[in-house]
């Protein structure tokens, strides 16, 4: 199996910073690290298993309704994740509210199924889905760390910025927790990514 399947989704083919997919959720759920972690995990599970599933079915799917078939499979996994979170991690499920359901609309999942799983064997498809989910999660986590730390002074709910600093006049940056700042921050992440990886720069 090509080694690129493992590395590409993290750097040269990162779903968020290079393919610009899954932007909406990366802006919405990165206010707190906990939400970003659960979202990253959920998306990884959904992409991995729906890619695997579609890849197993790839020779039987009628071409004309393939998008519908993909959607049904993706929706099944998303609903399962939503139900399991509601049963075993109620607080987190409450925090992520609609965004778990909205994983269905995450372009990365359908994108990977269409571009990869429909034409590949099950195991590479599973790895490709999982790595793309993790590549997406990586950016989410980076953004959530910056936003939670600067916006609320905490990480995973624990106070990181010492009280002494607040007493000295430091204030949390309220803009950090608003969606517009998430977009600016995402721009910065893309900028850093492109500066490091010169191949991504257009001539």
């Amino acid at each position: 199996m090509n080694k690129e399947i493992y590395t590409k989704p993290f750097f040269k083919g990162n779903p968020i910073t290079v393919l610009v997919l899954g932007i909406c959720s990366s802006l919405a759920v990165t206010v707190q690290l906990k939400g970003a972690l659960v979202m990253a995990l959920s998306v990884t599970i959904v992409t991995a298993f729906s890619s695997l599933f579609i890849s197993l079915l790839r020779n039987t799917i009628p071409n004309r309704v393939r998008i519908i078939v993909q959607l049904v499979v993706v929706a099944m996994f998303v609903i399962l994740i939503d139900q399991v979170l509601k049963a075993f991690a109620y607080d987190t499920s409450k925090m992520l509210s609609v965004y778990i359901g909205l994983i269905i609309t995450n372009c990365i999942i359908m994108g990977r199924i269409e571009a990869f799983a429909l034409g590949s064997k099950p195991w590479p498809s599973f790895v490709d889905g999982a790595c793309n989910g993790l590549g997406y999660g990586m950016i989410l986590i980076v953004m959530a760390i910056v936003r939670e730390l600067l916006g609320s002074g905490t990480l995973l709910g624990f106070q990181i910025i010492p009280q002494a600093l607040y007493d000295a006049g430091y204030m949390n940056n309220g803009l950090m927790i608003l969606p517009p700042m998430a977009l600016i921050l995402l721009g910065c992440v893309v900028w850093v990514h492109r500066s490091v990886d010169k191949d991504l720069q257009e001539k």
Binding site: T60, I61, P62, N63, V65, V69
Partner: peptide, 15 residues
């Protein structure tokens, strides 16, 4: 796999 019958049967079973 592109016939109408196949498509209908396939989607029904899947759903």
């Amino acid at each position: 796999t592109n016939s109408n019958t196949y498509t209908i049967v396939y989607t029904t079973i899947l759903v």
